[in-house]
Amino acid sequence: MTNAPQVQAMPDGEAELALVVRIPWEDVARLGQEAGRLAAQMQRPVTLDEAVSYRLRSTRPAATHAKPAGEQPQAAVSALPRISGTA
């Protein structure tokens, strides 16, 4: 049995969830390119973690307020945006 990932509340009102994912090296390279673009835009170094967070935030629909557990649809990992253009 695996332990459930811990969710940490952040001071800015968001939540942090640490995950380990396995992705192809091509996707790592694309994240590096994304980090480079963000670094140029922000005028500071950007980590791959930041690039992933930015990409997820920029592709998700507008946030909605939390609802009681019975009213929320179950989210699936397959619903997350793909970084790679390949299936």
Score class of each variant (00 low, 15 high):
A40M: 13
P68F: 07
D49N: 15
K67F: 04
V46K: 07
E14M: 12
A39G: 08
S53H: 09
R55L: 11
Q74E: 10
L17K: 08
A51V: 02
L31N: 09
N3V: 14
P11H: 03
A87I: 03
P73A: 12
P45H: 10
P61N: 04
R57P: 00
M42R: 15
R57Y: 01
R55S: 07
R30L: 13
N3T: 15
E16R: 15
Q6D: 09
A18T: 13
R60S: 13
P45F: 11
G32T: 05
A63K: 00
L38H: 02
V52I: 11
V28A: 05
G85S: 14
Q33G: 10
M42K: 12
A75Y: 05
Q33A: 14
P73I: 06
R57Q: 09
M10N: 13
L80H: 04
P61T: 01
S53D: 12
V21F: 11
R37E: 11
N3Q: 14
L48F: 07
P81K: 01
A9C: 03
A29E: 14
A40W: 04
T64D: 04
V28E: 01
R22M: 11
M1S: 12
Q72F: 01
A18V: 14
Q41V: 04
G85H: 13
Q74C: 06
V77A: 15
P11F: 02
M10T: 15
A18S: 15
S58Y: 00
A51F: 01
T64Y: 00
G36R: 14
E71R: 03
L48N: 06
T86I: 03
T86W: 02
Q33D: 15
P61E: 07
S84Q: 11
S58M: 02
T2E: 04
M42N: 04
D12R: 08
L48P: 07
R30Y: 00
A76G: 08
R44S: 03
Q6L: 11
G36T: 13
V52D: 01
A18C: 10
A35M: 07
E71P: 00
S58G: 00
D27Q: 11
L17W: 05
A29T: 12
P61R: 09
A18K: 15
L48E: 10
V52K: 02
A9H: 05
S84I: 08
R22T: 13
E34G: 02
I23D: 02
L31E: 08
T59K: 08
V7Y: 12
M1N: 08
S58F: 00
D49F: 04
V20I: 11
A15N: 09
I83T: 06
M1K: 10
A79E: 14
R22A: 11
G13I: 09
P73Y: 06
M42S: 04
L56Q: 09
R57T: 05
H65C: 05
E14C: 08
A35H: 08
